[in-house]
Structures are given as structure tokens and as C-alpha cells.
Amino acid sequence: MVTWRIFLVWVLAWWAQLLLAPLLQWLEGFPDLLLLAWLSVALVLRGRAFWVWTLIWGFSLGWISGLPDWVPLMGYLMLGLAWWWVRRRLWERPYLLLFAGTLIGTMTLRLWEYSILSLLGTPLPWRAGISQVIMPSLLWNLLLALPVYTVVTTVTGRPGGEEI
């Protein structure tokens, strides 16, 4: 049952990311609702289910995005490792964990994408990359982390942070 609910969150997150997130564009950045949904799901998942859903998130992003397929997949695997490390230290404070995850997740994914695209020859000035894309995206993600977490826990029906 929980699997189906997380699947519903995944579908809703994709729908919102493709259609709603671009409407919230500030400078060249917009919220990463997929990442926020993943973080909210990651708060209640452990073990194999956590890694399976992390792979699903990364693979689907690689398939739909214009980025090379393996870039989002590797990005989410790195994110999963970072999350595992942070969760061991902040497990008693779920909301702090959520915001720390948002900060670390946004920076990890955006810097990873930026580095790979630059290495592949896409001209991306670092100053514009940070000030016009990464920082506005980070601000949006921090603003929307709690609302998305609330929506996700409503859909999944899990108490979320209290269980951790």
C-alpha cells in the first residue's frame, strides 16, 4: 500500500515539476519539486526500499531530462549516500534533517549537473551558473521544502519525521 502511495507521489512530483515548477521561475532558477518529494519520501524509507526509490527517481530523471542518462542517476546515488550520512547524525531532528537534506541535495545535484555539462563542452559561466541558477533554485527549494513534505506525508499517510 505504501509503495502505491509513493508511486503516486512520484507521479505527482513529475507532473508538478514539468508544468508547475517552470511557472515559479526566478532569474533562471526554479524549484526542484522532484528532489523535495524524494527528500520527503526518504524521511520515511529505509533499507532496500530507500535505494530502489532513489534509483527510480534518478533513472526517470535521466530518461526525461536533456541531461545524459547517467548524470541524474549518478547524482541521485551520490545524494542517497549523502542522505545516509546526514541521517545518521540528525535522525533525532527530522525537520532539521529535511532542511539539511534540501541544502545538501540541491547543491549536490546542481553542482554535479554543472560540472558534467561543463566537462561535456556546454559553455556555462560559473558566476551566472551560481547567481542565476543555483542560488535561486536553492532558495525556492528551502521555501518549499516544508509545504512539499506536508503534501507528501498527507498522500503517503505516514507520520514522517516522528518515526525516524
Binding site: L19, D32, L34, Y114, V133, S137
Partner: peptide, 14 residues
């Protein structure tokens, strides 16, 4: 146009 690329570094539409 039914969507835009999730990566803010890319300018793609679906």
C-alpha cells in the same frame, strides 16, 4: 508544449 526540462541549466521543452 506539455513540459519543460527539470534541469535549470538546460532549455528544453517536451
Amino acid at each position: 508544449v506539455i513540459g519543460r526540462d527539470p534541469s535549470p541549466f538546460l532549455h528544453y521543452v517536451i
